[in-house]
Design a protein around this nucleic acid. Structure first.
Lengths: 154, 154
DNA sequence: ACAATTCCTGACCTTTTTAGTCAAGAATGA
DNA sequence: TCATTCTTGACTAAAAAGGTCAGGAATTGT
């Protein structure tokens, strides 16, 4: 389980754009330098962000990209969905090993575990805004979530 | 972000082996049928599970695979690590866009977000045992984790 | 001892995804 | 009008995922 380059790049770009919010738009090339994103790749990512309505673009000299709304109103989840489609892909219906029906075998015993994981990841992504990323204190929220224990109860 | 086929298959196999715990070992072919895992692929996965010490194998007729310890002492995390190496891969040092140093740009602003996600996912995997998967009530633990809100505080 | 059963090892292959490049064109502002 | 900047979509290379195959070694039942 991993963060793809697109997501990593996109979040870098979005945090940089957050810092520049309210100021002049930043050209793609400038963003590529600042965030160390491969030159031509950055455009592809920015296009996806624009199509998702997260950034606006302006052509011509002194053009570039800017956030379409304040950093506090953009979540990591929106960024991830913009570039990768889904935050957490559904398992059901895949890996059926040739079976016609969904073979989440044995009455779908494990399906709830994936669903909970999906909800956990999705919930996290939705709860984190760009503003929070910029402002947060890294020391906060370090404690392990106590509610997780419930799952391992006998 | 998704569950790979190896992980899905491995967890199916492990739940089936959990049900058979204490009984005669199950041959790979039998497991393949039961869990709808492609015939020759199942052996590869079982080998990894064995090398990780999660299952034992016995050759010869009436041989097969069995859990090496009770279902309550095996976590999803152990299964995932057995087949895929890591539960959550580190982002730092990757996607540096040609830069020599780790370019988690701008003083590693986003790195804490990935680390928290990693801790969340890892914590979940470690908290879930095979016994819990078999015994749990799907209705439980459905509530969204309240502590997540802390991250989005302004 | 022998044959059937079952695991073991590692090479091999195909498909999909990831990651990135490139080029021609259209809009914009100075 | 000209330099700047975004737009579009095709293209490609490398890696990972997903799966297959074959020859060999151990074990058990007879």
């Amino acid at each position: 389980m991993r963060i793809t380059s697109s997501i990593e790049y996109a979040t870098r770009l979005m945090t940089t754009l957050s810092r520049a919010h309210g100021q002049a738009p930043l050209p793609a090339e400038r963003l590529a330098e600042t965030d160390n994103v491969p030159g031509d790749y950055v455009s592809q990512i920015l296009v996806k962000l624009r199509r998702a309505g997260l950034v606006t673009s302006h052509r011509g000299s002194s053009g570039g990209y800017a956030l379409s709304r304040p950093p506090a109103e953009i979540t990591l989840g929106q960024v991830v969905r913009a570039v990768d489609g889904d935050v957490f892909e559904d398992v059901c219906g895949k890996y059926d090993g040739g079976a016609k029906d969904c073979r989440h075998q044995s009455g779908c015993t494990i399906s709830p575990a994936w669903q909970k994981l999906g909800a956990l990841v999705t919930g996290y992504f939705e709860s984190v805004t760009l503003a929070a990323i910029l402002e947060q204190d890294p020391a906060r929220c370090a404690a392990p979530p106590a509610w997780l224990e419930k799952f391992s109860e006998r």
